[in-house]
C-alpha cells in the first residue's frame, strides 16, 4: 500500500511545498517560478490518474503559455523593495480572516463528504485522447461549444482593451 502511494506522497509534498513557497517568497519572480513548479507537480497528479491528455494540455497551456506571460509582465515592471506597496494592518487582518474562512469551508466540505471511494484511476481509459475526444464531441458537445464562445468573447475583449489605449495615445499626440 505504501509502495503504491509513494509517487503520490512525493508529488503531494512537492505541490504543497511549492504552493507555500509561492506565498512565502520575497521576490515576485521566484513566486512565479514556484507557481510553475506547482503546476508541474499537479500535472504529475493527472498522470497518476492516467489522464495523459489533461497532463499535456495543462503543461502546454498553464505552465507553457500563461505563466510565460506572467513572467513577462513581472520582468518588465521590475518591483523594487522601495516601491513595494505596504498594506495597513487592517487590510492584512481582513485578508487573514477571509482566507481562514475559505479554508474552513473547504475543510468542512471535505470532512462532510465522508469516505471518498478510491476510483480505479490507473486502469480506466477516460483520460486518454481518443476516449476523451469522443466524450467531448458527443455527450458534452454543448458545454464544449459554449466554452469556445466564452473564450472568443474573452479574446475580443482583450483586443478591445488593447485598441482603446492606442486611440488614447494618438489623441494625446494630436493635442500636444
Amino acid at each position: 500500500m505504501l509502495n503504491q502511494n509513494l509517487p503520490f506522497m512525493i508529488l503531494a509534498t512537492l505541490s504543497v511545498f511549492s504552493a507555500l513557497m509561492v506565498v512565502l517568497s520575497r521576490k515576485p519572480v521566484h513566486s512565479v517560478l514556484y507557481l510553475i513548479f506547482c503546476f508541474f507537480t499537479i500535472g504529475g497528479h493527472y498522470l497518476l490518474l492516467n489522464a495523459q491528455f489533461l497532463f499535456a494540455v495543462h503543461i502546454i497551456v498553464y505552465a507553457g503559455a500563461i505563466m510565460v506571460l506572467f513572467l513577462f509582465t513581472l520582468m518588465f515592471i521590475n518591483l523594487n523593495k522601495e516601491l513595494e506597496p505596504h498594506k495597513t494592518n487592517l487590510v492584512k487582518g481582513a485578508a487573514t480572516i477571509v482566507a481562514g474562512t475559505l479554508l474552513l469551508i473547504m475543510v468542512s466540505t471535505v470532512t462532510d463528504t465522508g469516505n471518498i471511494l478510491p476510483q480505479q484511476a490507473s486502469t480506466n481509459e477516460v483520460g486518454t485522447v481518443a476516449v476523451l475526444g469522443k466524450k467531448l464531441y458527443s455527450d458534452y458537445v454543448l458545454p464544449f461549444e459554449i466554452t469556445s464562445i466564452l473564450l472568443l468573447a474573452a479574446m475580443v475583449g482583450a483586443v478591445m482593451i488593447g485598441k482603446r489605449i492606442q486611440i488614447k495615445i494618438k489623441h494625446n499626440e494630436f493635442n500636444t
Binding site: F53, F55, I59, I60, G64, T128, V129
Partner: peptide, 10 residues
C-alpha cells in the same frame, strides 16, 4: 506515448 506530439509541444 499516445500524446507524443503534445509531449513535444509541452
Amino acid at each position: 506515448l499516445n500524446i507524443g506530439i503534445l509531449y513535444i509541444f509541452g
